[in-house]
Design a protein around this nucleic acid. Structure first.
Length: 795
DNA sequence: CCCCCCCC
């Protein structure tokens, strides 16, 4: 301390050095600094002056220094160094404030009155201490004060300053002054628009509400108070909200409120703490507050109830625009106790509360309304003065009961969904996305369009097909993602219970704790997909996995669906050692990079029966991946597969039904006089050139640019016989060593459709190995080979 | 130096 005592403070002490020891002075300085520690207006010198002021005023200086007390009605704005005597009619709470420069200060207001009138007195920071000496009813003499016109009002007010001298007058007869009377009013008797004093107990301290006050933040809080006659709200505005903290007000405290302003609004009377009023915490004679906790099972239409329960459902908040253009938000939860459950509607700031499922909450001051939509018949509507406590203090018995309720609201295992009997039940699940389809648009009966997306979700116990609707369908969803879904609705699917994730469902990211026991994607797949070999495939198989090797990849074909949209389909032959299967890859799956010899893992294909063969269909909900090496270890090589499935046939052994046979022979004849045929792109039938255009006989259309089909025929010979073989498309390209486009260009350039006859004829004498299907040619009454692939070609 | 009104 001594180090901080500068010359000026020392000079202050010099003025009173014969009245107080330096040691005591320093001690007083310390005490007073503590008192003013939250007041940045007060420098150490200011504090020193308050001490000297005390001593010099008390003993030495003349009270008025020639100032004659004036009557209140005669006070004139603009005069300073004024003296006035009056009785204190009210004292306000001390308000802390921060001015524009960021300095902290204190302010209190008194009202003093004499026989001519009354006036407000403001006590600033250094004068607030005066309130330790006086209470309502005391007579005070205020000297060296300034009279000013009040802010934004006509009334004069008295401003005190550091130089002002404020004293309580105890001797003298002040019968002419108005009496101070502290009349208490029962809450039940408070009427609107008056100033009252009440004694009550605080029964609820709700949250501070914030609002926009012309661009500034406004604050408001309404204490719920109660006396033996009734309940009422006591509202604190803005800075006054700090009184709760300053006085350390707690629920259950009894208070006296002086000078509260009553107002009538919407038919209800409430109290507002006013600038002139004072809240005093103390031991006042008001009944203890016994809180009535309503059991949810007893809910009916009623106001101002207190309910304790466990959050059992949680819905996403909804934001909306009010009529005045401001934004509001609302959120629903459902809470449950051992007697039932009830919907709770939370507004605005309350809608931002976390309120996790399973947490215990207490709603104080809610209103129960009938609600036919909630499913719980009633709902608790909260309002701006409802208090929502998370994890309130409750006794162990109740806690135990509520936690038992909480057991039912945990996420369910997916396998248990099939044990459920009803559609429309809401459940929570935690799982991993197994597969996703692309969102697809659909038209509702009311004409609006919606989006739906099928997602498969699995956990350690099973898989559930789930439909995501509209904005939920647009979310980023990827196989392998862990998801938590609250309030998914059950609905019957073709085979199993399915789930629907719509507007009231919540799509969430599960916590680390919640995913601890969730198997990985491959572990789930292992459980749900049954691996089948090609020869085990059966029509209608579901959830199967096929591991194989690509034998042949054909070019993608565009086609038009009946609804006019374009589709792509690509045929791929897949084999595994037990057989080959034709696979159709649709749309975006048709563009997957694939080539003969690649290994491939196909999960969840459709398995169809068509033209006497099993085929598989790979579309949006099929998962196609490249298998890992340990999965393909047992898969034969391409050569081995070809040897296995392409049975060697001598020409004389070829039978009409043979498929995928491998035939080797020498080319003894090859026909190249016409190898390119023009096809209608719509009908895929031959078109003929006539009158300078291609005309399709089938559709009658004139064709701008036909499709070209290459067909080359030859005769093969081995030691057992000869047979005609026809090469179509890709096989023809392999045969001639040119693409269809190249052949078309040559023919177009020369104008002679036989211009490649010599090149084809050059093949004669070569040894060729082909993969082919056999067929019976009715016209020529002989078996022919339809070559699918040229395996080798050598001279 | 504070701001007498204001929030659902």
């Amino acid at each position: 301390m001594s180090g901080e005592v500068n010359d000026e403070i020392m000079k202050e002490y010099e003025r009173i050095k014969d009245k107080i020891s330096y040691e005591d002075f320093l001690k007083k300085m310390e005490e007073r600094k503590k008192e003013y520690e939250d007041v940045s207006f007060m420098s150490d010198l200011d504090i020193a002056r308050t001490i000297t002021g005390e001593y010099i005023d008390e003993k030495n200086e003349a009270l008025s220094e020639g100032n004659k007390p004036q009557k209140i009605s005669q006070l004139t704005a603009g005069h300073d160094n004024v003296c006035v005597i009056g009785r204190i009619m009210s004292v306000s709470n001390v308000k802390k404030f921060t001015n524009r420069k960021g300095n902290h200060g204190k302010l209190a207001n008194m009202i003093i009155a004499d026989e001519t009138g009354q006036i407000r007195v403001t006590l600033w920071t250094e004068n607030v201490k005066f309130l330790d000496e006086v209470i309502e009813g005391d007579v005070v003499k205020l000297n060296r004060v300034e009279v000013k016109q009040g802010f934004r009002n006509e009334n004069n007010e008295i401003q005190t300053s550091r130089d002002s001298k404020l004293e309580k007058i105890t001797d003298g007869n002040f019968e002419e002054l108005p009496k101070y009377e502290e009349k208490l009013t029962n809450l039940a008797d408070v009427k609107g628009e008056s100033t009252v004093n009440v004694v009550a107990r605080i029964i609820r301290i709700p949250r501070v509400r914030t609002f926009d006050r012309n661009g500034n933040d406004g604050k408001v809080m309404s204490l719920e108070i109660q006396d033996k006659t009734g309940q009422m709200q006591l509202t604190l505005w803005n800075n006054d909200v700090g009184i709760v903290e300053d006085l350390k007000l707690k629920e259950g405290d009894s208070i006296k409120v002086l000078g509260a302003q009553s107002r009538l609004r919407n038919g209800e009377v409430s109290l507002t703490h006013s600038w002139r009023g004072r809240i005093i915490k103390g031991e006042f004679d008001v009944p203890e507050y016994d809180e009535d906790i309503l059991k949810i099972g007893d809910a009916h239409e009623m106001k101002n109830v207190t309910v304790i329960g466990v959050v059992c459902k949680n819905y996403d908040k909804i934001t909306f625009e009010r009529n005045d253009g401001s934004k509001g938000q609302v959120k629903s939860i459902e809470m449950q106790d051992e007697t039932g459950s009830i919907r709770v509607t939370l507004w605005n700031d309350d809608a931002d509360m976390k309120l996790e499922k399973g947490s215990i909450i207490k709603i104080t001051g809610g209103n129960i309304e009938f609600d036919e939509y909630s499913g719980t018949d009633y709902r608790i509507n909260t309002n701006w003065n409802t208090k929502i406590d998370e994890d309130p203090e409750i006794d162990d018995k109740l806690r135990e009961n509520l936690q038992k309720c909480g057991d039912y609201i945990k996420p369910v295992e997916i396998s248990t969904l099939n044990e459920m009997d009803d559609e429309g039940d809401e459940v929570d699940i935690i799982g991993r996305i197994i597969s996703v389809q692309d969102p697809s648009e659909f038209q509702r009966t009311d004409g609006t369009s919606g989006t739906v997306r099928t997602v498969e979700i699995g956990d350690a116990t099973g898989v559930v097909r789930t439909s995501f609707w509209d904005e939920k369908a647009e979310k980023s969803l990827n196989p392998g993602d862990a998801v938590k879904i609250e309030n998914a609705r059950t609905r019957f699917g073709n085979y199993n219970m399915e789930l629907s994730v719509g507007r009231t469902s919540r799509l969430m990211e599960p916590s680390e704790e919640e995913t601890k026991n969730l198997p990985s994607l491959s572990e789930i797949e292992e459980k749900i997909y049954k691996t089948k070999h090609v020869d085990e495939l059966e029509e209608g198989d579901q959830n199967i996995r096929l591991l194989g090797r690509i034998l042949n990849v054909y070019d993608p074909n565009q086609f038009q669906r009946s609804d006019g949209t374009q589709g792509i389909v690509r045929t791929v032959e897949i084999a595994d050692g037990t057989g080959t299967v034709r696979a159709s890859f649709w749309d975006e799956k048709a563009n997957l990079p694939m080539k003969a010899g690649d290994t491939i893992k196909i999960e969840n294909p459709r398995v169809n029966y068509r033209d006497g063969n099993i085929e598989i269909s790979i579309s949006r909900n099929t998962v196609v991946t490249k298998p890992k090496e340990d999965e393909t270890g047992k898969l034969p090589s391409l050569d081995e597969i070809q040897d296995m499935i392409y049975k060697n046939r001598k020409i004389e052994d070829v039978e009409e039904e043979d498929r995928n046979i491998k035939v080797t022979g020498q080319i003894v004849e090859a026909y190249g006089n016409k190898i390119l045929y023009e096809m209608c792109p719509n009908c895929n039938k031959r078109v003929n050139f006539s009158e300078n255009a291609y005309i399709c006989d089938i559709c009658g259309e004139e064709i701008d640019e036909p499709n070209y089909l290459m067909i080359i025929s030859c005769v093969m010979e081995d030691e057992t016989g000869t047979m005609r073989a026809t090469f179509f498309r890709k096989a023809a390209e392999e045969f001639i060593g040119m693409t269809t486009d190249e052949v078309r260009d040559v023919i177009a350039k020369t104008g002679d459709e036989g211009s490649l006859e010599d090149k084809v004829a050059d093949m004669v004498g070569q040894e060729i190995t082909i993969i082919a299907d056999a067929s019976y040619d009715e016209y020529n009454e002989e078996i022919r080979l339809n070559a699918k692939k040229v395996v080798s070609l050598k001279i």
